[in-house]
């Protein structure tokens, strides 16, 4: 049975002149303890997806249709009180930028203890002990002292470790991490990812990892969703998607990885940019940037279909696959 089951999730933003669709018919499942990556360029709708899972879309955004079943209970239809019970307890979130996530005027201790005490009947001292244990788990030195410190006294990496500790405070079943290392110094990004992976594995916590980096996804996750302009365009087991991408966009992302580039060779970026929500082209949203685009692509939206081991939304998937196979034979 799956922990999380998302069906036809559609999120819109009511802008002044028009209503734009930021997420369009997203569907996926997550098993207990499973780790799922969501990738795509900036503006694809990854963060919106993450926030929607916790029903954290705020005005002018709204969930237009679809359901998000967490233990068979629809997050979209939950009461505010029920949502408060769930958030921070069974479902925790790690935000992108640790420099602005913690409240600057509250101590680390206050921000950890309030979370524990919002969900469990604990004395301050009991809560303090749990906080110290969790800080140790994320390798924070002298945790007792940290509790009395304010966020600005700590480095970015230290703060993100603390935010991971806060996510783990109540032993959640699912952690949603939205680009948890993008705002950090490059030298510590790998450490933080490794820590997150280690803790998710040892605590059997499900993880939804949002990132624009397919390399990170391949190290961290078992399954992957590739998003483009508010839709899932390819989904499946991470190994499959990395080794044998079907969608031209996924292929482009993989070709752009530094590992795929020989020393001295220029990075092979996908030409052009992701369209803005007000300006999504008709047909396949990727068609202006796609080298395989046909007339059909420019008029008709490709449905997402099961193709082999993966789900993919591309009219030309069979032709591309045949060509890819022929090229491999020739080589």
């Amino acid at each position: 049975m799956s922990l999380l089951s998302v069906r036809d999730l559609t999120v819109k933003f009511a802008m002044r002149d028009e209503t734009v669709t930021a997420l369009n018919g997203i569907s996926f499942d997550l098993a207990k303890g499973e780790r799922l990556g969501i990738v795509g360029e900036s503006g694809a709708g990854k963060s919106i997806t993450g926030f929607a899972l916790m029903n954290l879309i705020s005005r002018p955004g709204f969930v237009d249709r679809g359901e998000i079943l967490f233990h068979d209970e629809d997050v979209v239809k939950m009461s505010d009180a029920r949502l408060r019970e769930l958030r921070g307890d069974k479902m925790a979130m790690i935000f992108q930028d640790p420099m602005v996530t913690l409240n600057p005027v509250l101590t680390i201790g206050q921000q950890m203890l309030e979370t524990l005490m919002a969900h469990r009947k604990l004395s301050r001292e009991e809560a303090r002990q749990i906080a110290i244990v969790k800080l140790r788990e994320v390798y924070i030195p002298s945790p007792e002292e940290r509790l009395n410190q304010y966020p600005h006294e700590l480095s970015g990496g230290m703060r993100q470790r603390i935010i991971i500790a806060i996510a783990l405070l109540l032993d959640p079943e699912l952690i949603i991490a939205d680009e948890p290392t993008t705002a950090l110094d490059v030298t510590i990004q790998a450490d933080i990812m490794e820590l997150l992976l280690e803790l998710c594995q040892s605590n059997k916590v499900g993880l939804i990892l949002i990132t624009h980096d397919l390399g990170v996804v391949s190290q961290m996750t078992e399954r992957t969703l590739v998003m483009y302009a508010g839709r899932i365009i390819e989904a499946g087991r991470t190994r499959e998607i990395i080794n044998d991408p079907q969608h031209p966009y996924t292929q482009g992302l993989i070709n752009a990885l530094p590992q795929q580039t020989l020393p001295g060779q220029k990075l092979r970026q996908i030409p052009g940019n992701m369209p803005s929500l007000t300006n999504i082209p008709p047909g396949c949203p990727f068609n202006p940037r796609c080298e395989y685009a046909t007339d059909l692509c420019r008029t008709t939206l490709p449905e997402i279909i099961q193709y082999g081991e993966v789900r993919v939304a591309c009219h030309e998937v069979e032709r591309l696959h045949a060509e890819g196979a022929r090229q491999e034979q020739d080589a």
């Binding site: 916790m54 954290l56 705020s58 949502l83 408060r84 019970e85 769930l86 958030r87 921070g88 307890d89 925790a92 979130m93 935000f95 930028d97 602005v100 996530t101 913690l102 409240n103 600057p104 309030e114 979370t115 919002a118 969900h119 806060i166």
Partner: peptide, 15 residues
């Protein structure tokens, strides 16, 4: 962000 984060932790509105 820190207010959004507090909501995501399940903190009560008055707090």
């Amino acid at each position: 962000e820190y207010v959004k984060y507090a909501v995501a932790k399940g903190i009560k509105p008055w707090r």
